[in-house]
């Protein structure tokens, strides 16, 4: 376990914790951006350069901005008077803790069976591109259709209907 990994893991987990714990919604969105950046750096640390930069472009560049826009459009930055957590927060926390306990137990139990080291894969963007238009061309086309449908759907759902005009 390298020193860099611990720094990046701390950054990512701290960002994620702040994103779900802070009271102000805008601060949550900014903390979420920190968590996304930490994840992108973890991807780069795993020698997955393409996925790391795709993570920066898609999540920090698009999803975080979308979240901020949604907060602005819904006046969500106002902190509610009666707390930010749901009435059933204890049950939710218990479920999340149970999930983490099971996942952590499974990882710890099998830690000795996991490969301890692997040679650094030399994957170029050219190989990824050739795989995308070769072996994975059908999923690529389906994702293209899905993104188009999602974009049209999001615009139609969020479109403002004038009174009397449907």
């Amino acid at each position: 376990m390298s020193f860099v990994f611990y720094i990046l893991a701390t950054l990512t987990v701290a960002g994620a914790l702040a994103a779900v714990l802070l009271k102000n919604t805008v601060h949550c969105a900014l903390a979420l951006t920190v968590a996304f950046a930490g994840l992108a750096l973890l991807f780069l640390n795993l020698d997955a350069q393409f996925a790391g930069f795709a993570q920066i472009l898609v999540y920090i560049g698009a999803v975080a901005i979308l979240v901020v826009f949604a907060i602005l459009l819904t006046k969500g930055s106002e902190t509610p008077k009666d707390g930010v957590f749901s009435r059933t927060w204890l049950a939710g926390l218990a479920v999340a803790a149970a999930v983490f306990a099971v996942l952590g137990w499974a990882v710890i139990q099998t830690a000795n069976l996991l490969p301890s080291s692997a040679p650094t894969p030399t994957v170029t963007v050219q190989q990824i591109g050739q795989a995308l238009v070769g072996r994975y061309v059908l999923p690529l086309e389906i994702v293209a259709v899905l993104l188009t449908a999602a974009m049209i759907g999001a615009v139609i759902i969020a479109m403002h209907e004038k009174d009397g005009v449907k």
């Binding site: 994620a16 779900v20 930010v84 479920v95």
Partner: peptide, 22 residues
Amino acid sequence: ALLFSIGLAGALTRRNAILVLI
């Protein structure tokens, strides 16, 4: 696993719908 659990806790305990999406 830790990130997944933090996200699950956020989705289950927050009241704001945007925070659930986060």
